[in-house]
Write a protein that binds this DNA or RNA. Structure first.
Lengths: 139, 139
DNA sequence: ACTTAACTGTAATAAGGTTGCAAAGTGACA
DNA sequence: TGTCACTTTGCAACCTTATTACAGTTAAGT
């Protein structure tokens, strides 16, 4: 089921289907939350080299398969792009929620970021929003 | 002028006044934008050890003199807390602006973050917001 | 099946961050 | 102003995270 989906995503992005890529993308689909480099390494039993992971994440980023979630703890976390993200132009203008209890970072795709009024002369290109607290599952 | 202010801030936080702390805090006051570890090292001519900088930033964080600005590039940036931030309880619920042109990160203290409606069961503790684009000075 | 181009693993290197301990500086007090 | 206790700094070693180069392997199209 999910296995077919993985191949689908890879092929539609003109990427060849390899074992590491299958594992990594499969893990994203399974977890359905933002993952750090470390999370992925641990989750996939280190069945490939660290370097491959770095490169794969970079490739996925460029293709718009994943996006970076803003954080305050010096750990890059990546999450699947749900909406159609074109190459180089992401649609990650949604709210991210970090749960203090379970530690997961979730994309709230349904909730769009409210508009902000900035001073004169400022031009906005992108907005990121991170909400921390207790998520629905943990309370 | 700023020199007296530096000592003032340190003393009112019950910290002894030392050369590294003076330099680091002075640099924050002078630049008035969010600074990374690297920015500070470069700006202060490495007149103290790397470790001292790590420890000083940690201390300033704990005292509420500075706060961490969320980012998407894996670089922690710190900014002065303008409002009275009590020890352990920060008031950094303001918008941060990252300029694509000059690369600076500014705290928009005047602009509060708009409220967001989250699904049932979610409890919010803190909200961070990062806007990227072109700032008033650069356009 | 063959060939080309893309991808991966290994190793070496760089950058970023942490810890323990001895030496030096700070602030309080006589 | 000198002394003392305590805090802070600098150094060295170490660990983790990230990047680059290159050779070997694998995938996809014909």
């Amino acid at each position: 089921m999910s296995e077919a989906m993985v191949e689908d995503i890879l092929r539609s992005n003109h990427l060849s289907v390899t074992t590491p890529r299958r594992r990594i993308l499969g893990w994203f689909l399974k977890k359905d939350s933002a993952l750090s480099h470390h999370d992925i390494e641990a989750g996939t039993q280190r069945s490939f080299d660290r370097v491959t992971l770095y490169r794969t994440l970079q490739t996925f980023l460029e293709k718009g398969i994943i996006h970076i979630v803003p954080s305050t703890d010096n750990v890059i976390r990546y999450a699947l792009c749900k909406e159609a993200c074109k190459e180089g132009h992401h649609h990650d203008d949604h709210v991210h929620f970090v749960c203090d209890a379970c530690g997961t970072t979730q994309c709230m795709d349904k909730i769009t970021i409210p508009a902000v009024r900035l001073p004169k002369g400022y031009r906005v290109r992108q907005i990121g929003m991170v909400v921390t607290g207790i998520c629905g599952r943990c309370r």
